[in-house]
C-alpha cells in the first residue's frame, strides 16, 4: 500500500502492508523511535503523536488511513539542542523517572494546551459553556490518557502548569 506522510515537515513515501499501524511505521520504517509502544491498545498514551495538530494514539490507527496527513512526533517538537518549553520544563521540574512515558506525555500536553487555548471543555470543567481554567484538576483530567508507571504525575502536572503560566 503506497502511503505518503509528512512527518515533522518532511515528506515520506512509504510502501506498507496495510496492517502497519502509524506507530510501527514511525518506529520500524522511519526509525523515529521517540514515540513509544507501551500497550499497543490505546490504554497508555506512550504512542501519542499529533495528526493535523490533534493528539491521537498512533498504535490504534493504520498508517494507510493517514495518506496525505501531517504528523508531528516528539522528534519534531524539539531536539536536544533546541528543546521546546515543555521539554525544558519536564527537565527542570523533574517530570520523569525512567522516561518511557515522557515523549507521549509531552506530545499529549503540547496538544492539550492548544485545546485549552481553544476553549475545549473537559470532564473536570464546572461550567462547560465557560472558558476552562488551567487548574491541577483540569490538567490531571485532560492528561488521563497518559499513564506513568513511575507515577511521576505531580511533577508532570507541575511542568505543564509552569509552561502554560509562562507562555500566558
Amino acid at each position: 500500500m503506497k502511503t505518503e506522510l509528512t512527518i515533522n515537515g518532511t515528506q515520506h513515501k512509504l510502501e506498507l502492508d496495510p496492517r502497519t499501524t502509524l506507530l510501527d511505521a514511525l518506529r520500524h520504517h522511519l526509525g523515529l523511535t521517540g514515540s513509544k509502544k507501551g500497550c499497543d491498545h490505546g490504554q497508555c498514551g506512550a504512542c501519542t503523536v499529533m495528526v493535523n495538530g490533534r493528539r491521537i494514539n498512533s498504535c490504534l490507527t493504520l498508517a494507510c488511513m493517514h495518506d496525505g496527513d501531517e504528523i508531528t512526533t516528539i522528534e519534531g517538537i524539539g531536539q536536544p539542542d533546541n528543546l521546546s518549553p515543555l521539554q525544558q520544563a519536564f527537565i527542570s521540574q523533574d517530570g520523569f523517572q525512567c522516561g518511557y512515558c515522557t515523549p507521549g506525555q509531552i506530545c499529549s500536553a503540547t496538544a492539550m494546551l492548544e485545546e485549552i487555548a481553544e476553549g475545549w471543555p473537559s470532564h473536570a470543567t464546572e461550567d462547560i459553556n465557560d472558558r476552562p481554567s488551567l487548574t491541577v484538576d483540569e490538567i490531571a483530567e485532560r492528561m488521563s490518557g497518559n499513564l506513568c508507571r513511575c507515577a511521576a504525575y505531580p511533577n508532570i502536572v507541575e511542568a505543564i502548569r509552569k509552561t502554560a503560566e509562562e507562555s500566558a
Binding site: 490505546g42 498514551g45 490533534r54 493528539r55 491521537i56 492539550m112 492528561m143 488521563s144
Partner: peptide
C-alpha cells in the same frame, strides 16, 4: 451529550 462524551475514554481517543 457533551458531558457523556467528555466522561468517556481520553483526549487522544476522543479525537479519533
Amino acid at each position: 451529550l457533551s458531558r457523556a462524551l467528555l466522561a468517556g475514554a481520553s483526549g487522544q481517543l476522543r479525537n479519533k
